[in-house]
Structure formats: C-alpha cells, structure tokens
C-alpha cells in the first residue's frame, strides 16, 4: 500500500486526475463528503487530503510515502525528502512586487512583507541587501499600501491581484510548480512501487507539455 498526501484544493484535484489517468484511481474520492482518507485496496493506493503547506511534513515524517507539494513549500521548509518529478502543473512564480513606480535606492534597510520568510531572506542575502522581514499570514498585498513594508515577496499566478492593488512585479525570485516528493526511507523499502508511479506520472507530464 502506497500512502499519498495530496494538497487540498484545485491543485490537488488536478494532481488526483493525473493519478487517475495513470491507473491509480480511487472512485470514492469524487463522492461529495467530508472524508479525508480514501483507499483502493485493489490498486494498492491510499490518498489523503491535507493542507498544502503540510504535505511535506506528512512525507518527511513518513505518514505519507509520497506526496505532491508546491516548490514554494519545499524551498521555504527545506524538508529532507526526495524530489522525484516536476509535474509541470500549478505553475506560477515567486516574485518581488512593489507599488507601481517604486524605486529601491538601496540607501536604507528594505522592509519586506512575506509569508515565505526563508525564501525572501535567502534571495536578499545572495544579493547582500539588508532587509527587515515582516512575516504575514495572508493579504500580503496590502502591506505596501498601508506602509507596513516597501515590497512584498509572494506567489504570482496571473498578476490580477497585484494589478487590482496597484502593485507590479519588480523581480522574479524563482519559478514554481508542483513536485512529486517521496519519504527517503519509504523509497528504500517501496522502491519498485514508487518508481512505477513516478514513471507513469512522468509520461503524463510530457503530454501536458505538448498540449500547451
């Protein structure tokens, strides 16, 4: 039995669709109920829905053998796991955004509001820029508007939210997409099954690419 941690929400549903196409279906998952764990004994797979930022914790601690997490979560929490495949879905980017027309003169400490304090610290440390991190948990876009910060570091998908708040991207930190991850110890004992799932999903990633 392979335990798979899926991120709740739209991305998780797309990921499940890939598993289903690859032959790891679990019809009960589509029933409209509040259950969080679904199993298909015949195929040897058990899915469970968890908060997207918790997927890597379930996998690192071995409660899930494999899982799907955004690269943003992996970069932020640095879990000790195998990152086997770029699923090429849930694509977006981690970016620095500022009020339209903002200019960083570099003369004083830059105030950065973000949910991703580790990623932001590393990005500016690489550039030798002195910053003051303001860790927020949501609605990051209003931080520069209210004068809480100069810039924000956040995930940008279409840019609509930024535009609506009169912000613009000033730099891309890193491109983001969903990744298939595995617990290192589980990989040693369930090598064949995990390799098989990875190979089948990899076949589907290529198809996604050609569809674009």
């Amino acid at each position: 039995m392979i335990n798979v941690a899926l991120p709740k929400g739209r991305l998780g549903e797309s990921v499940y669709a890939m598993f289903e196409t690859a032959g790891y279906e679990c019809p009960a998952i589509k029933e409209n109920n509040r259950k969080l764990i679904f199993e298909n004994e015949a195929v040897g797979i058990r899915f469970f829905w968890v908060k997207p930022s918790d997927v890597s914790i379930y996998v690192e601690r071995g409660s899930a053998d494999i899982g799907v997490a955004g690269k943003d979560i992996l970069l932020e929490y640095q879990p000790d796991i195998y990152e086997l495949l770029d699923l090429n879905i849930g694509k977006c980017r981690m970016a620095v955004a500022a009020p339209r027309g903002y200019h960083d003169s570099g003369e004083r400490t830059l105030k950065v509001a973000t949910k991703f304090s580790h990623i932001a610290s590393r990005y500016y440390a690489d550039r030798g820029r002195d910053i003051d991190i303001i860790k927020l948990n949501g609605s990051i876009e209003i931080a520069p508007i209210l004068g809480l910060s100069d810039v924000i570091v956040d995930i940008v998908e279409t840019g609509t939210t930024l535009r609506e708040n009169d912000l613009e991207v000033v730099a891309t930190v890193v491109p983001i997409s969903a990744r298939l991850i595995a617990n290192k110890a589980a990989f040693k004992f369930k090598t064949k099954q995990i390799e098989e799932i990875t190979a089948k999903l990899k076949g589907l990633v290529v198809k996604n690419d050609s569809d674009l």
Binding site: E60, R61, G62, S63, D80, N183, K184, A185, K188, F189
Partner: peptide
C-alpha cells in the same frame, strides 16, 4: 542505514 517502519535514516 534505514529500518522499515522508521521514517529517517
């Protein structure tokens, strides 16, 4: 070294 049932080396 890894032992089955333990999530890290």
């Amino acid at each position: 070294g890894f032992l089955s049932g333990i999530c890290e080396s």
